[in-house]
């Protein structure tokens, strides 16, 4: 063959094309990692001690003790479960009007801004931080937890609901509006059928999330299984802690499969 072809080939850079920038970014990442890793102060003696404890925890996880603290565990579980259900129901009921109010295609601007404001506040704050405040106001126990989860549900559900309503087909809304329907009739006929299946699906999903969160907010005093777990770990009762964690994992799995089954059944 008369023509000769190159014998080397290098993959052209895909994301950052300028070589100088590429080196700068790589250097930046390396410097950051060095600095960040430098800030970790590890007390290796403590970690070595911890390993033994870690082994005990792993053993507790493999041989969980459901029995000796069963009274505490069952009380915590009941609190968590009741808290989850009531807060989801109340949260959904409140998030429907808030969600409709936060849909720009249905309401006047002032209502829209108020409702979007509520959603923004609820989403910006972590459940645990809300729980700290509500515990300070309402005292320890599941009632503060219930309020926390309800409030968090509003931010989650109302936002998705509002986004959904804003995306519904304008054609159908027009058609119903053209029949001379009032605003409530409009919501009932044009909006509700389009967003209802998703609302049910999202509510079930939120139920699942609320249960998981209920296990956390107990750590700051808002009742539920988290409080029991916190106590068990404080007492170094790793076998009881293992039992609680397994229960949480089990319930979350049941909730996940159950809700996906229920969603299929309802559609």
């Amino acid at each position: 063959m008369s023509e000769t072809y190159p014998t080397t080939w290098r993959r052209p850079p895909q994301i950052i094309r300028s070589a100088r920038w590429r080196y700068a970014v790589q250097l930046g990442i390396a410097i950051y990692l060095a600095l960040a890793l430098g800030t970790i102060e590890v007390d290796w003696g403590r970690v070595a001690d911890g390993l033994a404890r870690g082994q005990r925890f792993a053993a507790g996880f493999l041989q969980p003790d459901f029995v000796s603290r069963w009274a505490d565990i069952s009380r915590g579980l009941i609190e968590s479960l009741t808290m989850t259900l009531t807060s989801t129901v109340v949260g959904v009921l409140i998030s429907i009007p808030v969600g409709i109010g936060a849909a720009a295609n249905l309401v006047p601007a002032p209502v829209y801004f108020v409702c979007r404001g509520i959603i923004a506040v609820s989403r910006a704050l972590q459940e645990v931080i809300i729980a700290i405040f509500l515990v300070a106001m309402f005292g320890f126990g599941p009632f503060a937890g219930f309020l926390t989860l309800s409030f968090a549900t509003i931010g989650f559900l109302a936002k998705l609901l509002a986004d959904d309503i804003e995306e519904i087909e304008p054609g159908q809304v027009e058609a119903v509006r053209a029949t001379g329907a009032s605003w409530t009739q409009l919501v009932n006929y044009a909006v509700q059928p389009q967003v209802m299946p998703r609302l049910i699906g999202l509510s079930l999903y939120r139920l699942d999330i609320n249960f998981r969160e209920s296990a956390v907010i107990g750590i700051v005093g808002a009742g539920g299984i988290g409080a029991t777990l916190n106590t068990a770990i404080d007492r170094y009762e790793y076998d009881s802690a293992g039992a609680i964690l397994l229960l949480i994992i089990g319930i979350v799995m049941i909730a996940e499969y159950g809700s996906s089954y229920l969603r299929k059944f309802l559609q």
């Binding site: 063959m1 023509e3 072809y5 190159p6 014998t7 080397t8 080939w9 290098r10």
Partner: peptide
Amino acid sequence: LRKYPARDIQTAYRLLD
């Protein structure tokens, strides 16, 4: 690592041509 032997790269170029 995309470090193919020189002969493979030459072949690939020839085929592309």
